[in-house]
């Protein structure tokens, strides 16, 4: 422990911050699940429109994914670019 420097402390805190940042994945997970559930219900109601429903659902899910990806980008920056430990 005697070689424990301030930089090490910052790196450890960055790792914790990266872990906290990817909690942002919860939101898109729930949102995409809701979209997929409603998509399945819509296909059940109107099987003829399966193609349209699927493409609309995937488009909406891909857009909803963005907030989770923001968290991922923040986590990757903290882990690999280490902006705070410069």
């Amino acid at each position: 422990m005697e070689n424990f420097t301030g930089t090490d402390f910052i790196l450890g805190c960055s790792a914790i911050g990266a872990g906290l940042a990817v909690i942002a994945g919860i939101g898109p997970g729930i949102g995409q699940g809701i979209a997929a559930g409603h998509g399945a219900a819509a296909v059940g109601r109107n099987p003829g429109a399966k193609g349209d429903i699927t493409s609309t659902m995937l488009l909406g899910q891909a857009v909803a994914e963005t907030t989770g990806l923001y968290g991922l980008v923040v986590a990757l920056l903290l882990m690999f670019v280490k902006p705070l430990a410069r």
């Binding site: 891909a62 857009v63 994914e65 963005t66 990806l69 923001y70 991922l72 980008v73 990757l76």
Partner: peptide
């Protein structure tokens, strides 16, 4: 900003 970050982060997550 959101359009570029969406594309970037999706492809980057696969690469990582």
């Amino acid at each position: 900003v959101s359009m570029s970050l969406r594309l970037f982060a999706n492809v980057l997550s696969g690469v990582v």
